[in-house]
């Protein structure tokens, strides 16, 4: 029985004003990136709670990508100040519990950075592919 090649499942939470727009620009520019990502549009990266991220991992996401405006450029002025506090903390907490480092990634991508968006998605997908299926997904109940 042939094994289906492992294709990671990636969830992206992108803020409407910057990263989502940057993703659209990548589209307009016809820049290609792997189709493993499923995008959830939010108004601000500050809308994303660590709860949402944990739920994504719990339900089997191999990677979670959060995209927001650069610091200082947030459409809502400072919503992204909370994003970086929360996500950086969560990254370290997850690492402590043995979660593979790097599955949660935060990137500031502006509406003008179409090429950067495509590159980030490409690199992230590649990285998650190398890491393999998430430990939590494979063995949610270890012996």
């Amino acid at each position: 029985m042939a094994e289906k090649e492992y294709e990671p499942k990636i969830i992206g939470f992108f803020c409407n004003w910057c990263t989502y727009a940057g993703a659209d620009l990548a589209g307009v520019s016809r820049l290609q990136y792997p189709p493993n990502i499923r995008v959830i549009r939010v108004m601000c990266s500050g809308t994303v709670s660590p709860h949402h991220v944990l739920r994504a991992f719990q339900k089997g996401a191999d990677g979670v990508l959060i995209g927001g405006c650069h610091i200082g450029d947030c459409h809502y002025l400072k919503g992204n100040y909370m994003t970086i506090k929360r996500m950086t903390f969560l990254q370290d907490l997850l690492k402590f519990t043995g979660f593979e480092d790097g599955r949660l990634h935060l990137e500031w991508i502006s509406a003008a950075e179409g090429p950067k968006f495509a590159q980030v998605v490409r690199e992230f997908t590649e990285k998650i592919k190398k890491l393999g299926p998430s430990r939590l997904k494979l063995a949610p109940k270890a012996a």
């Binding site: 499942k9 969830i11 499923r38 959830i40 949402h52 739920r55 994504a56 339900k59 089997g60 996401a61 997904k137 949610p140």
Partner: peptide, 12 residues
Amino acid sequence: VDEALAELEAEM
């Protein structure tokens, strides 16, 4: 989130 990952539920 759940719907995006719905196919994986069975696997998990």
